[in-house]
Design a protein around this nucleic acid. Structure first.
Length: 273
DNA sequence: TTTGGGCACCACGTAGGACT
DNA sequence: AGTCCTACGTGGTGCCCAAA
């Protein structure tokens, strides 16, 4: 059997076949975990066209099946992107009518990410979506003014039930608070954030990470002499200086000062770009 | 002390190649 | 058609730090 660089295909005795795994969440719709059939051609160009078309058809069909399967849309709605709450233009004050909904939590997340998410790492976006997704799962996608301390307590309990440590609960609560505070300020409402000041054991399950001992560091440094390449330079530099990996990776050659009685690196200079 | 956020790491799921 | 394996991406978590 021979494999070619045509996506979703393999070649057997010169004939191209289509092969693609069925995603786990759609496995129930199929009798097999993989879709495979002959593309009835020996030509790569023809196979590529047929396989691409088949893959696109599957993508569309799977999307349709997933939409049908969505029973609890919380997080998924966040990722797809609810209606952008652009109805409240930046800088324009819109007083809230007493019976008018302000902003649902999913809309608040969208607003938060739209205004604060530019040039932020993917982890920033994921944390906001995940943390608020937890709230939606536990308490529903309510108007941000409708959440109560009872909701916050129920949310806390749901996180504890997930066996999160105290520091992780703090991390998740922090993101939720941040989203709600930002969205409330942005649409011009004043609220007491029910997710602030919630009690839980912040030390529960928290362990200090022990540093590597000198012997471990020496062993790592010895390994760095096995070969002369960039990866080992980086590890050796980190082990010598205690710098963070990202800091070491961002250094310029002229940040490393080997002249003089005390060799050193200039970290601040490396942040110039 | 609290809040907001960054970074690093681990676990897991998926795609796709290799093989039977 | 099915299994095994590997590389890779992502979700989830925990610790840390700076600013308020």
């Amino acid at each position: 059997m021979e494999y070619q660089a045509v996506a979703f295909t393999f070649v057997k005795q010169g004939i191209y076949y289509f092969a693609r795994k069925v995603p786990n969440d759609l496995r129930d719709h199929y009798t097999s975990s993989r879709i495979s059939f002959s593309l009835r051609t020996r030509k790569a160009v023809v196979a590529r066209a047929r396989a691409t078309k088949a893959a696109q058809q599957l993508d569309e069909h799977w999307h349709f099946l997933r939409m049908q399967n969505m029973d609890l849309p919380g997080k998924h709605m966040l990722r797809i992107g609810p209606q952008t709450p652009a109805a409240v233009p930046i800088g324009v004050s819109q007083p809230q009518a007493a019976d008018e909904p302000a902003l649902t939590l999913s809309e608040a997340v969208a607003l938060y990410l739209r205004l604060k998410g530019n040039n932020r790492p993917a982890t920033f976006h994921r944390a906001a979506e995940r943390s608020c997704g937890y709230v939606i799962d536990a308490c529903g996608d309510k108007d941000i003014t409708a959440y109560t301390r009872a909701d916050a307590n129920a949310f806390r309990d749901s996180l504890i039930a997930r066996v999160l440590s105290g520091s992780s609960i703090t991390r998740v609560f922090g993101t939720v608070r941040s989203v709600i505070n930002f969205a409330a300020a942005e649409v011009g409402i004043t609220l007491t954030n029910p997710f602030a000041g919630v009690y839980y054991d912040r030390k529960a399950g928290v362990e200090d990470r022990e540093p590597l001992g000198p012997e471990d560091v020496r062993r790592v440094q010895e390994k760095c002499h096995v070969a002369d390449d960039e990866a080992r330079w980086l590890v050796a530099l980190v082990s010598d200086t205690g710098m963070r990996l990202a800091e070491a990776a961002g250094l310029h050659l002229d940040d490393i000062k080997l002249e003089g009685p005390i060799p050193h690196v200039c970290q601040s200079a490396s942040k110039r770009d």
